[in-house]
Computed example of a mutant assay.
Amino acid sequence: MIVCENLVKIYKAADLEVVALQGLDLKVESGELMGIIGNSGSGKSTLLNMLGGLDRPSAGKLYVAGKDLFRMSGRELVQYRLRTVGFVWQNNARNLIPYLTAQQNVELPMLLAGKRKRERAVELLDLVGLGHRRKNRLGELSGGEQQRVAIAIALANEPQLLLADEPTGSVDTKTAALILDLFQELNRTLGLTIVIVTHDMALARKVERVVAIRDGKTSSELLRRKNDDLPQEEEEHEELAVLDQAGRVQIPREYLDAIGASGKLRIEREEGRIVLLPAEE
């Protein structure tokens, strides 16, 4: 569903250049439910904006559902945002129009795509558990209910890919768990590909794979390991470093500090292993 190869994004403001992504590699399979984590400024939201067709890469390759987002015209990007991808924002003000009812909000993207289907809007609100609140406006819904309406809006035009930027960032822990359960259910029942950007490591218990971005690169992946002896909420995970196309790997700072490494490392091959040692003075 998603292929990113050596993806670079540079923002320019006056004489200042900020490199948000520095050769990021990522592949996401069709029907996968996965998370992206990273510190503030790591590039995760920049990546999501490019996957959503809201921003263009500076260099590299970016394909979503077989479409080359690097070469799309402005008109093609509009159609892509309307029909291929759905977006759920952390800030509900970006998801919902306050003077419309929940049902009217869900109908709006269908109207923009030239196909108003009232029955489809009601069906989607039922799907997210809010059929009974379809006549309510924004001020009459809780934060969690607003976010579930936002998910229904994102699904209105039957996208192939659902993107969520910190979807649980503005709700309490209990509501966050309900929203993540909903994503899991949508992935299972609709076969929808879902990518969630978050800073919450609890997300790792809800998805099969979590990709960590550090300094604008894909640095590691956290994979769920099946263990029938453990309850689901305590499942084991295995963290793997990501080797990019140039053979580069990012070593976490705490690992380097533990061996007193700075500046340069000695690399040795030993019985099928690669060993990193602090450089001798």
Rank of each mutant, 00 (worst) to 15 (best):
Glu166Asn: 12
Lys12Gly: 06
Asp229Asn: 13
Ser219Cys: 12
Leu243Ile: 06
Ala258Cys: 09
Leu180Met: 15
Ile194Ala: 01
Glu123Trp: 05
Thr173Phe: 09
Glu233Lys: 12
Asn105Pro: 08
Gln22Phe: 00
Lys117Asp: 15
Glu234Pro: 00
Glu32Lys: 06
Pro159Thr: 08
Gly52Lys: 03
Asp68Ala: 02
Leu108Glu: 10
Tyr80Asn: 12
Arg137Phe: 11
Pro231Arg: 06
Val64His: 03
Thr193Ala: 03
Ala113Lys: 10
Gly60Ala: 05
Arg75Lys: 14
Leu138Tyr: 11
Gln103Phe: 03
Leu155Gly: 06
Glu5Pro: 03
Ser45Asn: 09
Arg224Asn: 09
Leu186Lys: 03
Leu26Gly: 04
Arg225Tyr: 09
Lys135Asp: 15
Gly53Val: 14
Leu162Phe: 12
Phe183Thr: 00
Pro57Ile: 10
Lys226Trp: 09
Ala121Arg: 00
Ala154Met: 08
Ser219Pro: 09
Ser58Arg: 07
Val195Gly: 10
Glu233Arg: 13
Lys61Gln: 14
Gly41Ala: 01
Ala241Gly: 05
Asn92His: 14
Glu145Tyr: 05
Cys4Glu: 09
Glu166Leu: 07
Glu221Trp: 03
Ile36His: 02
Thr46Glu: 07
Asn157Tyr: 06
Glu123Pro: 09
Met72Gly: 13
Asn91Glu: 09
Ala154Arg: 02
Arg75Cys: 08
Ala13Trp: 11
Gly53Gln: 14
Tyr11Glu: 04
Arg148Asp: 02
Leu124Pro: 07
Val210Gly: 08
Leu69Gln: 13
Glu32Ile: 01
Leu21Phe: 04
Lys117Tyr: 09
Ala121Tyr: 00
Val106Arg: 04
Gln104Cys: 02
Leu203Glu: 07
Asp165Val: 11
Gln184Tyr: 06
Asn136Ile: 10
Thr198Asn: 09
Ile2Asp: 09
Gly191Tyr: 05
Val242Lys: 00
Ile259Pro: 02
Ile153Lys: 04
Pro109Glu: 08
Glu238Ser: 09
Gln22Ala: 15
Tyr11Asp: 10
Gln245Leu: 01
Gln232Gly: 06
Leu62Arg: 00
Thr218Phe: 00
Lys44Asn: 03
Ala241Arg: 03
Pro109His: 09
Cys4Asn: 11
Leu190Gln: 12
Ile196Met: 01
Glu185Gly: 05
Glu5Gln: 15
Ala176Asn: 08
Glu271Ile: 08
Leu240Ile: 02
